[in-house]
């Protein structure tokens, strides 16, 4: 593992690294999979996973490898990693409201807790992170603060994606005010609004981007 990190550092230092591992992180139901699907469909025509209004739909890391992004003369190859949502609590009872049986809800909760652990472990294996936040919600949550603090401590470049701007209550400026030290791109992953701007920022800020 330390050897992997050394080679990683070496390749990045000399600009030899060709593929960027782009992790999509955030709280639950912020639209991470919708964004991953949007990016993947734009460049490969294929989706990464299923998005759903039921919390913790993504319970395993979903990958789409070798996505070639070309935007305004910049080329970037990414391995897209759609992460399970990070949470500090998972109660199986919340899934009963969506019509799941008790057994299915318990199973989903178990998989969701494993998914959070897996997402956290992957923090050591991403080059750049899209931190997705729901622009209709208060951004100053402990999950967001902890996630950004960890990325900063690991020196991983972060782009905050203020998602769901198609909704009336969306307030992307609240995200900018809460985290002024990070680039913030406001998008609607669902409608595809401003995604071009996101590619531009990824090409500019991603570790290993040329």
């Amino acid at each position: 593992m330390p050897l992997d990190k050394f080679f990683d550092w070496f390749y990045t230092l000399f600009g030899l690294k060709k593929t960027v591992r782009l992790g999509i992180y955030g709280s639950v139901n912020t639209g991470k999979t919708t964004l991953a699907n949007r990016i993947s469909k734009d460049w490969t025509g294929q989706e990464v996973g299923k998005a759903s209004p039921i919390p913790h739909e993504t319970r395993f890391v979903q990958k789409k490898e070798k996505i070639h992004i070309k935007h305004r003369g910049k080329n970037l190859t990414i391995n897209l990693l759609d992460m399970p949502g990070i949470a500090t609590k998972i109660d199986y009872r919340q899934f009963l409201k969506y019509g799941l049986s008790k057994k299915a809800a318990r199973q989903r909760a178990k998989e969701a807790t494993d998914g959070v652990i897996e997402a956290i472990k992957w923090l050591n294996n991403v080059d750049t992170v899209l931190a997705v936040m729901d622009a209709t919600q208060d951004p100053l949550t402990q999950v967001n603060v902890t996630l950004l603090g960890n990325l900063e401590a690991r020196k991983i470049p972060v782009i905050i994606v203020a998602n769901k701007i198609d909704k009336r209550r969306a307030d992307p400026d609240a995200i900018r005010d809460a985290f002024p030290q990070y680039p913030v791109v406001e998008v609607s992953a669902l409608k595809g609004k401003n995604v071009g701007q996101l590619y531009e920022v990824i090409a500019k800020h991603a570790k290993g981007a040329k």
């Binding site: 990070i86 500090t88 960890n150």
Partner: peptide
Amino acid sequence: KPEEEIDLIK
């Protein structure tokens, strides 16, 4: 510290 807080979540 953030690293410890994420360990707490884990």
